[in-house]
Design a protein around this nucleic acid. Sequence first.
DNA 1: CGGCAAACCTGCGAGC
DNA 2: TGCTCGCAGGTTTGCC
Length: 279
Amino acid sequence: MPELPEVETVVRGLSPFITGQIVQDIVTNRPDLRIPFPENLKDLQGKTVLNIKRRAKYILISFENSFVLCLHLGMSGTIRLSGNNSESLQKHDHFLMILQNGTKVIFNDPRRFGMVLLLKEEDFSFHPSFKNLGPEPLSPDFSGSYLYASCKGKTSSIKQALLDQRVVSGLGNIYVCEALFKAGIHPKRKAGNIALKRMEKLVEDIRQTLEKAIKAGGSSLKDYAHVDGSLGYFQHQFQVYDQEGRACPGCTCDTLKTGGVQRIVQSGRSTFFCPEKQN
DNA sequence: CGGCAAACCTGCGAGC
DNA sequence: TGCTCGCAGGTTTGCC
């Protein structure tokens, strides 16, 4: 599920509850998710949480002694905060971080596409999961000229390019569809065949799409301010994603003629777009 | 190297 | 009600 805005929402939701707290124990209820859990998770016992951040779709929790716990929610992962000692575990609660003040951070992941890594700060940027990540889409490094240069010569589609975490990190299927709609660019257009001006607008539209979603996540956070909420998905109305056949919002195209929002498959994944507005 | 399909898993809704 | 099928927001691997 979770793309950049959802992960950002989880990070912001967790931060006030775990920052400065001390780990009592780490508990795993099975040997692995997509990959085996790290063998040295118990090294976190007694360590203080310094801060929690996001990089791409990873949640990064930094501890004293330079440990960095990296959590990836995969497709179906959610994180639940519990301060209630009597709360029982639910199905697919695979990983728990228990703090000395009684707070539990519970990682639930039915499909087990998620991932947990425990790295040292100094090894972080060399790890395969991080060494090839492109710039954060909300950072100044991600500009129209950067994207134009990155896509130069690419024969694959702009949708593929934006999903490539080496080009830009944190975008997933939903927000790529939404941003391309906003930018009016056809998802099948060759990435190397888009003018600099259009790339500049695309970059701006990606930013606005993400920021709007983060804001929506922030407002849904109110529901989780009381410990016990699930952090992960939040309700958000999409313009084209999963809207096949609907008239696209703010578009004057004749739905009867164009069929409204269309769904196609690119590299095995659904793409939603408006054939009238996106070219 | 680039591009693409397949693989990893469970759950859910649609259709019969 | 219950079965099967298709589909799902991510990443990695292996094959051309």
